[in-house]
């Protein structure tokens, strides 16, 4: 079904064969794109066209296509997740673009996120930061205390939830001129620091996670606030402030 509202676009896309090769921008045309389709559905149309011409399709990450898995990660017209606010790439719709527009599409760029192929990057550094301390040490015994034994104020529970909504997409890093991961790490540290269950390991956690973050090659935070603007889940800068406080307290009072 094609309508007169359909759009034609010029795409400039980063193509890179593998991690070792150097990449370059390549131009493509796509025609007949419905404004109601999503950005990734537009990419599907491009790829179907490339396949039918016998060319290799453009590789990009995606899975849930509903803004929650954190897999999609395109840098569109110089913005992580593109021009719309509070959305992931997969939730971005073509009605945000104009017929005839040229759209630039690049991968996340950061030392700690090496490109694997085309627009796919390796974000396992995020996992390793979580492995360093992003958990509460509790075994699955089947006789943990009753869930309602320790009331938690609604205010703290809601704030912990707000921090916990981070989807680990990495847009904050991609958009930061220093490629800092402070928003991502701050969100996890904040979530646990607000909950009674997170208290015992509170100091070690923040120290270990920050240490791993530095080891992975993420940059320093210079408070530009760009991460908050591009974060699809509205994770606020307050999480960075809380983490800094937690870190300071932990460094001063850490028992050895």
């Amino acid at each position: 079904m094609s309508t007169n509202k359909d759009m034609n676009l010029i795409l400039k896309i980063w193509r890179q064969k593998d991690q070792k090769s150097s990449g370059k921008m390549v131009d493509y045309k796509v025609n007949g794109i419905s404004p109601d389709s999503s950005f990734l559905e537009m990419m599907d149309v491009l790829n179907e066209g490339l396949i039918s011409k016998g060319e290799e399709p453009v590789e990009f990450d995606h899975d849930c296509r509903e803004g929650i898995c954190g897999m999609c990660s395109l840098y569109i017209n110089g913005e992580a997740h593109g021009p719309d606010r509070a959305v992931t790439t997969c939730q971005l719709h073509m009605r945000k673009f104009k017929d005839g527009e040229t759209v630039t599409i690049e991968p996340w760029r950061a030392k700690a996120f090496p490109v694997l192929k085309d627009l796919k990057v390796d974000r396992s550094s995020f996992d390793r930061i979580q492995q360093a301390g992003g958990f509460i040490s509790v075994n699955t015994s089947g006789n943990t205390q009753d869930a309602n034994a320790t009331p938690i104020s609604k205010y703290n529970a809601d704030k912990a939830m707000d921090a916990a909504t981070c989807i680990g997409c990495g847009a904050c890093v991609a958009t930061c001129k220093n490629a800092s991961a402070m928003l991502f790490v701050g969100a996890k540290v904040t979530q646990y620091s607000l909950l009674p269950q997170g208290q015992v390991e509170r100091k070690e956690r923040v120290l270990n996670m920050v240490k791993q973050m530095d080891l992975e090659g993420f940059g320093n935070c210079t408070n530009t606030g760009a991460c908050e603007v591009e974060c699809p889940k509205g994770i606020s800068l307050e999480n960075i402030a809380i983490m800094n406080r937690e870190y300071l307290k932990a460094s001063i009072t850490k028992e050895d």
């Binding site: 958990f135 205390q145 869930a147 309602n148 009331p151 938690i152 529970a157 939830m161 909950l195 269950q197």
Partner: peptide
Amino acid sequence: IDQCVAQGVPFAREYGGLL
């Protein structure tokens, strides 16, 4: 539910602090 709360899953709560 007990296990998840112990892990720090932030379930919705009422004003009294209970789930």
